[in-house]
């Protein structure tokens, strides 16, 4: 039973997840692009590569905006969280070994203890964001259930993954949870607020263009 499930999650389900993630992301961006062409021509008329990149640069640079300097703890947590969130899955030795076994391709990986520490940073980041949602009144007011579910959707694959890595009790089950939850996470990215991953460059770039090219002002 466990083996069948493992085979399913590693085989067909993984393909489905990747397809939904890449296909869904492509679809969302393309559909939004079409809608923008039809209803928001202004975006294309005023977009400016230089000012879009100027704005994106300032908002991807740690402490590059005034608001980041106003909230140093949030800034550090948010940057560490997002960086680890991307690096760990892509540069984890266990993942790379699986890929090498399948397709005989590989790339450099992170030392295991570093990856482990980074995993806990992601989990701690989720905890920080959740605590912020509970403690800080304005954020609590804005928060709906889906915001907690999204945090959980990120935390679960990381906790279960490190659980499996350390071979803690019942780790085979943790492995299955890890694979299933990670696949779910991939699939929901294009269709939830996690799609900010896809749309960030567009919204930021558009606002950067309006502020830079038309309004001759900074937006960071």
């Amino acid at each position: 039973m466990m083996h069948e499930l493992y085979g399913f999650l590693r085989g067909p389900m993984l393909w489905v997840a990747l397809l939904v993630f890449f296909g869904g992301s492509g679809y969302r961006v393309a559909a939004m692009w079409r809608l923008a062409r039809k209803k928001d021509a202004v975006i294309f008329n005023y977009s400016s590569g230089y000012y879009a990149l100027r704005s994106i640069f300032h908002w991807l640079l740690p402490f590059g905006s005034r608001n980041m300097r106003n909230h140093p703890v949030m800034t550090v947590v948010a940057f560490v969280f997002h960086i680890c969130l991307f690096l760990v899955p892509l540069f984890l030795s266990a993942h790379i070994i699986l890929i090498k076994e399948s397709w005989n391709v590989s790339w450099p990986w992170l030392p295991d203890h570093a990856a482990d520490a980074m995993t806990w940073m992601v989990v701690a980041g989720c905890g920080f964001f959740a605590a912020r949602r509970i403690i800080q009144p304005d954020v609590r007011y804005l928060t709906s259930t889906s915001d907690y579910l999204i945090l959980a959707a990120i935390a679960v694959p990381f906790v279960s993954g490190t659980w499996a890595f350390h071979q803690w009790p019942a780790f085979p089950a943790a492995t299955l949870v890890h694979m299933a939850s990670a696949e779910i996470l991939l699939m929901i990215i294009p269709f939830t607020r996690l799609s900010h991953m896809l749309f960030f460059p567009f919204t930021r770039g558009y606002m950067g263009s309006e502020f830079g090219a038309v309004r001759k002002a900074r937006d960071w």
Partner: peptide, 30 residues
């Protein structure tokens, strides 16, 4: 309502980082 309306309302992650930009928020005791 086009792409701007959709993207703005669907990608806001409710982080509250905009709160302190607003004079109404700051002046009404947050």
């Amino acid at each position: 309502g086009g792409a701007r309306l959709k993207v703005y309302t669907e990608t806001c992650v409710h982080c509250g980082l905009c709160s302190e930009a607003c004079h109404f928020y700051l002046s009404n005791d947050k």
